[in-house]
Design a protein around this nucleic acid. Structure first.
Lengths: 211, 211
DNA sequence: ATTATCTATAGATCTATAGATAATGC
DNA sequence: ATTATCTATAGATCTATAGATAATGC
């Protein structure tokens, strides 16, 4: 998320730091309550930034919160991407993608709470993971691994299911999230055309280690 | 939604009408923008109700919008329920439930926009359709129609997928919604253990006529 | 007599901006 | 000299309530 030495001169770095402080505050708020009716004043205070500075970077609250969602989504993409980079089989990619994302509810709660609140609108967005997921789905189809008529519909199922799983972990704190994620991965793989036994096997394989 | 002669004396009916006007205004706002930062004053104006009356019925904006979501959800439940009442086979119930809901995006846009914005939090709620859906899933399992390890996880997939489909219709207005819904129903039935050919057949059956 | 609605308003809060201050580039 | 941040504030808006008005029950 933060590279150690951002580019630009000291001016640009200070400016970027102020902007980032605002985005980080917005992310916290999105994750904690999802309530964006908080005042700009309160946001600036939380960011420890002068009130007027807000308008140096954003035109409105909605503008800031959009940037915060984009920021969290990018971080999510990088994290998932880093973990999945070794995998080739589309079935393994889908399974690991679902299970890693579920695991991130614990390791990266802020990001996943933001996705739970705002993720639905990103499922089919050209930013975010949609293009990658679509590409993997289509690769699975051409290789014969998957049987899917409409990749966009399958993407709706995968993305929506993941949000449903995040919500399940939130509504029912008692259930075992890893187990639920394995279950879901198995169901989704079977849906995509992987034989049930193989789907179960893949969904229970050890994950690539978490960074 | 509105029975022609609500109970109670004229006082209670007038009171109920005022409350309903506020709820209807809140529903419109939720459906149009989903932005709940609108002022109470603006809500009262839209409801054509005196500003102070708001506080006779609700303690806060959040309180009103919660009531509006509950109201829309109940109406959704009634509509779906009415259409599915003739069906017995759990597989047909799942398929028709998905396809009818997708169709309601056109016939009942306000309700479905509200669900798109607020539905995720209702997937596992004891209000709403969750109990019914869970019961149908479990009936399908005991009758051997479905193969499902964790009904709550399956419910997450069904509910999340439906929201993903609503979102798809919204992000890609060009695609054929009915066809997408048939596709999704087929995929979900297969996931639940229905053989693919049969799943396709069921997902393409004519729906019970829309009221 | 009772109850709900409506109007008016006080006080609080919020937004957007103007002007002063501080930091950096050249 | 330039640029961003910070402080202060004017004006707008919003919330919650108090008191007046209208409708109904008995």
């Amino acid at each position: 998320m933060t590279t150690s030495a951002p580019p630009g001169n000291r001016f640009e770095r200070r400016r970027a730091a102020t902007r980032q402080a605002l985005v980080r505050a917005a992310r916290q708020i999105l994750a904690e309550s999802g309530d964006t009716s908080v005042s700009i004043q309160a946001i600036a205070e939380r960011a420890d930034v002068g009130f007027g500075s807000f308008y140096n970077h954003f035109e409105s609250k909605a503008d800031l919160f959009d940037a915060a969602v984009t920021d969290a989504l990018a971080e999510y993409g990088e994290a998932v991407d880093g973990h999945l980079s070794g995998l080739e089989d589309p079935a393994e990619l889908v399974s690991a993608g679902v299970r890693l994302s579920a695991g991130m509810a614990e390791s990266h709660p802020e990001i996943m709470e933001i996705l739970r609140h705002r993720g639905l609108g990103q499922i089919h967005s050209a930013r975010g993971l949609a293009p990658w997921a679509l590409r993997d789905l289509e690769r699975g189809v051409t290789s014969g691994r998957f049987v899917v008529d409409a990749p966009a519909v399958a993407l709706s199922v995968l993305g929506g299911s993941l949000l449903g799983l995040l919500q399940l972990g939130c509504s029912r704190p008692d259930i075992d999230r890893d187990e639920a994620a394995q279950n879901m991965a198995e169901m989704l793989l079977h849906m995509l055309g992987v034989p049930r036994d193989e789907a179960r096997d893949i969904a229970r394989r050890p994950l690539p280690d978490i960074r």
